[in-house]
Design a protein around this nucleic acid. Structure first.
Lengths: 105, 105
DNA sequence: CTTAAATAAAACCAAATGGTATCATGAGTC
DNA sequence: GACTCATGATACCATTTGGTTTTATTTAAG
């Protein structure tokens, strides 16, 4: 799906970044996540949907509850995207180095 | 400022990602950027403001026009943020490796 | 100095977002 | 079967966003 737009969009919100921080320590149900915020379960749920849409979390049912955990896919999508620009900075630095070399020769 | 929220928010839009792609090849004025899109200059300008707010571009005046170029700061902000989770994946993989080792001993 | 070009700034509009409260559903427990 | 409990789904509200058009403001060129 390579929809890194949805991934970046999901990361552009402080609440969702905090949720990811929580899930980095342990898998949690929606109710457990909601208990850490001053927000309704329904409100948290909507954030979870956006995180899921960005492939930043995945959900697996366990009985009547659902466990949310981090999903590497979304993280990899933005790492990949960044790679393109890392390339760019390298070229810029090389170009700069060449200019300096030319000036000194 | 470390407002990576503004940076992620700026990246969560396809038009703005395309603008960054253009600026990776050459510095451009707003009018030049706008000429590549089916959009008003004013519309492009608003995107540029969001990109600037996320430290993804920087603007320097040259006569009556303004040159827009990529700014490494925003890119570094999200690379840094990703670092935390890279750490997380490493730990997960180590934990998994240990489980496998225990099962085989 | 007048005029044109590039940008900035403001008012406005439709659509998406972050949140709420309310109702429906599905799994465990008695 | 009846009853909770965790979740899902929906309708609704205020604010932000992506875009337009229109109106300044600054700089270059005659």
């Amino acid at each position: 799906m390579q929809d890194n737009i949805a991934t970046f969009k999901a990361l552009g919100d402080p609440t969702r970044q905090q949720i990811l921080g929580l899930l980095a320590r342990e898998e949690l149900t929606i109710a457990e996540v909601a208990s850490k915020f001053d927000m309704t379960r329904a409100g948290v749920k909507k954030h979870m949907i956006l995180l899921e849409r960005g492939n930043l979390i995945s959900v697996t049912p366990r009985g009547r509850e659902r466990l949310n955990r981090l999903n590497p896919e979304g993280f990899r999508a933005i790492t990949d995207w960044l790679g393109f620009f890392d390339n760019f900075w390298d070229e810029k630095l090389n170009a700069l180095a060449n200019v300096i070399k030319d000036e000194n020769k």
